[in-house]
């Protein structure tokens, strides 16, 4: 990836609050048209990093460059190219949805027409409610309004901090589809942090995992996950016999095995599934279900707990 394609470049970012180190030498790059997942448990430093990129908090040391320019010297220019939701989508609750959007449009640095605002209200499914005060909105509606606000000035970089928090299942799917639409159809670059790690797995192409302010791992999502073993859950009619067979088999003797009622969980590779299934069939063990449980959650928890 060439240097010019770097939309975000964070180098050795440090943020201290007194003696407490919230971020310790975090470095990462986000390239053009990336959907970049930002993962970490509560208090890991995700929000602090995102707030630093948005100049909401100052860094103790380190470098933040966006669009090839240092953030500190080009704050206003850089922010004019970013749309964001930081944590909760909070709005002026005594104003209507439309008035809120008009208010933020006015200071977005671009000329935004009323028809653009109406188009976005329609896009996020708030048509008919635009004149209602935000105080009467549900969390999901505020989240939708937040997305409309984010897209107001057609930003190049979109930063979504926990965008699916509080949404119902349909809302989560809608946000996921929206992000993919923005990436694929509008060529946007997106940074997304989420606690719903499967969301990141479904939409991000690159990611970073941080914990206690430090980078645990970063890279392409596909690469990171492919190199990991998976958990295969076999639903069997004779689990003790299956364990005995596996322990006697040279290929699987060292695999981590766990029994959960009539299920057998085996830590192995994707390629081994059919061989293990054949092994069970040859030994007259009934297999009524196979499920792979390799998810980002497992990978994430493994890294964080280590």
């Amino acid at each position: 990836m060439s240097e010019t394609n770097k939309i975000v470049e964070v180098k050795n970012l440090v943020k201290n609050y007194g003696s407490f180190c919230a971020i310790e030498n975090v470095s990462f790059d986000v390239h053009q048209n990336d959907v970049f997942g930002f993962l970490g448990p509560n208090g890991a430093g995700k929000s602090t990093t995102i707030r630093t990129i948005l100049s909401l908090i100052s860094s103790t040391s380190g470098e933040v460059n966006l669009f090839g320019l240092p953030l500190n010297e080009n704050r206003n220019f850089i922010l004019s190219k970013i749309g964001c939701i930081v944590e909760k989508p909070d709005f002026y609750k005594y104003l209507s949805a439309q008035k809120n959007l008009e208010l933020f449009a006015r200071i977005s640095g671009k000329s935004i027409t009323k028809s653009r605002i109406n188009e976005l209200i329609d896009f996020v499914g708030l048509s008919g409610r635009e004149k209602d005060k935000v105080s009467g909105f549900s969390h999901g509606m505020k989240q939708r309004l937040g997305i409309a606000q984010t897209l107001l000035h057609d930003p190049e970089l979109i930063i979504l901090d926990e965008p699916t928090t509080g949404l119902d299942p349909q809302g989560i799917i809608d946000v996921r589809n929206l992000i993919l639409q923005l990436k694929n159809e509008k060529n946007k670059t997106i940074i997304i942090s989420s606690h719903i790690l499967s969301e990141i797995e479904l939409i991000a192409n690159r990611m970073i995992i941080i914990n206690k302010g430090k980078t645990i791992v970063q890279g392409d999502v596909a690469d990171l996950l492919n190199h990991q073993e998976i958990i295969v859950q076999f639903k069997l009619d004779n689990v003790p016999k299956a364990i005995q067979i596996l322990k006697q088999h040279s290929d699987y003797a060292k695999c981590e095995i766990k029994q959960e009622d009539t299920n057998l969980l085996i830590h192995t590779s994707l390629e081994s599934i059919s061989a293990i299934n054949n092994l069970f069939c040859e030994n007259k063990i009934g297999v009524s279900g196979i499920e792979t449980k390799r998810k980002l959650e497992d990978y994430f928890l493994k890294l964080v707990n280590n």
């Binding site: 948005l54 100049s55 909401l56 704050r75 206003n76 220019f77 850089i78 922010l79 004019s80 970013i82 964001c84 930081v86 944590e87 909760k88 909070d90 709005f91 002026y92 609750k93 933020f104 200071i107 977005s108 640095g109 606000q149």
Partner: peptide, 11 residues
């Protein structure tokens, strides 16, 4: 209200 976050991320 939390709107300060949104306000200060504007150019």
């Amino acid at each position: 209200m939390g709107t300060i976050r949104l306000l200060l991320t504007k150019p």
